[in-house]
């Protein structure tokens, strides 16, 4: 493999600037989460707090039982949802990528149409709760996000259509391989880059999803982590703004730092597992390169 490379120092320089731009607010986020609340209120967020405090985290730690339970729920729905979602998407995308498939245009349109039109929240809710009885079940956290709409399918289809040589598929078919075998043995290994990408997107979607929990879940034991954090946040905010000041609730949580601590807690695990994902991604590439 010989290609002329770009000037590496220049490329790295550009990326160092980009990385700084992306990391800088993130550092601010972490530092704010360990700043004393009154320091935030009087001086705003800063990179080097005048007063450090772990009050925000200790406030969150009071909810640790609920928090760990929610992490469990989130990990479970993320793993199952990503795997099943990816499988269904690839299975639907592959036939659509085959130019010889009868009714291909019509079926593609059927998939595409879901991107633009939806029935809205109330009808969707009624179907899942009244017809499928999914209120307060894990299913309600997994099913609605599997494909969501046809977006990922169209992406995968485009990749299949453009990166997998038709000749390979045709010759395999002539050699007597079944369509399932072709899909499993040839198409999937060749398309690891897109599968890893879509897998990552699905993971992010499941990890960050709070909306399905908001509408389908009322049982606290089924709250996902984003759901739990989101609800805590809104509750604190409501208490503060509405001045209800119940005698029993003399606890006045450190709003600003808690908000930031919640953001950290919500995305940190995702950032930690990201390198593993990438590892898989890169491995997939080398396999793809060998076969190609």
């Amino acid at each position: 493999m010989k290609t002329n490379d770009m000037n590496q120092p220049v490329v790295h320089a550009i990326f160092i600037i980009l990385v700084a731009l992306c990391l800088f607010p993130f550092v601010l986020l972490i530092m704010s989460s360990i700043t004393e609340e009154s320091a935030i209120v009087s001086n705003g967020y800063s990179f080097w707090p005048s007063e450090f405090s772990l009050e925000a985290y200790s406030y969150l730690w009071m909810q640790k039982a609920a928090m760990f339970n929610s992490y469990g729920i989130t990990v479970l729905i993320t793993v199952v949802g990503t795997f099943v979602g990816l499988l269904i998407s690839a299975l639907l995308a592959y036939p659509l990528s085959r130019r010889d498939l009868p009714l291909r245009g019509m079926l593609s349109f059927l998939v595409f149409f879901t991107l633009l039109f939806n029935g809205g929240l109330v009808p969707t809710y009624l179907i899942y709760t009244e017809v499928f009885q999914m209120k307060n079940t894990l299913m309600s956290l997994i099913i609605p996000g599997l494909l969501t709409n046809g977006f990922f399918i169209l992406l995968i289809r485009t990749f299949f259509a453009n990166s997998i040589p038709v000749q390979i598929i045709e010759s395999a078919y002539i050699d007597g391989a079944s369509e399932f075998k072709i899909f499993y043995r040839i198409v999937l290994p060749l398309s690891l880059p897109i599968l890893a990408t879509i897998g990552l997107m699905l993971t992010i979607n499941y990890w960050n999803d709070w909306f399905n929990g908001l509408i389908y879940i009322t049982e606290p034991r089924l709250f996902s982590i984003q759901n739990l954090l989101n609800r805590m946040l809104v509750n604190i905010q409501f208490l503060q703004q509405n001045n209800l000041g119940n005698q029993q609730m003399a606890v006045n949580p450190p709003m600003n730092s808690v908000r930031m601590a919640m953001a950290v807690i919500g995305i940190l695990p995702l950032i930690l597992i990201y390198p593993f994902f990438q590892n898989y991604f890169v491995k997939g590439l080398t396999i793809g390169a060998v076969k190609g």
Binding site: Y125, L214, N230, R231, N235, F238
Partner: peptide, 21 residues
Amino acid sequence: LMPIDIGAWAQQVNLLLAGNE
């Protein structure tokens, strides 16, 4: 007893009342 968080109140009550739960 079914406590509904204030953040979820508008959505959940609206949907509860739309359905037959």
